[in-house]
């Protein structure tokens, strides 16, 4: 599930919501639903981890449009 670890919070949360909607309709074959459910659990854990670990980053915008550390 390396691909999940590479996702940003927004990406992971958005995909999680999509999965919830898909499973809610109940249209998918069962084995696919189970797969989505497993992925959804990992996405939720990833989101929580990102929220727990988040640290505010600050950059400074220079006159020439470049960014530097603040």
């Amino acid at each position: 599930m390396d691909d999940i670890n590479a996702l940003s919070y927004e990406q992971a949360y958005s995909e999680l919501n999509d999965l919830v909607a898909k499973i809610e309709t109940g249209d998918l074959p069962l084995d696919e639903s189970v797969k989505l459910y497993e992925r959804g659990r990992l996405l939720a854990a990833h989101c929580q981890k990102l929220l727990d670990a988040a640290e505010l980053r600050i950059q400074r915008l220079n006159d020439d449009g470049g960014l530097s550390a603040f």
Partner: peptide
């Protein structure tokens, strides 16, 4: 809270 909610919804629907 939103993530917890989504995770719960996922579980309930499953």
């Amino acid at each position: 809270e939103a993530v917890r909610y989504a995770a719960t919804a996922l579980k309930v629907f499953m």
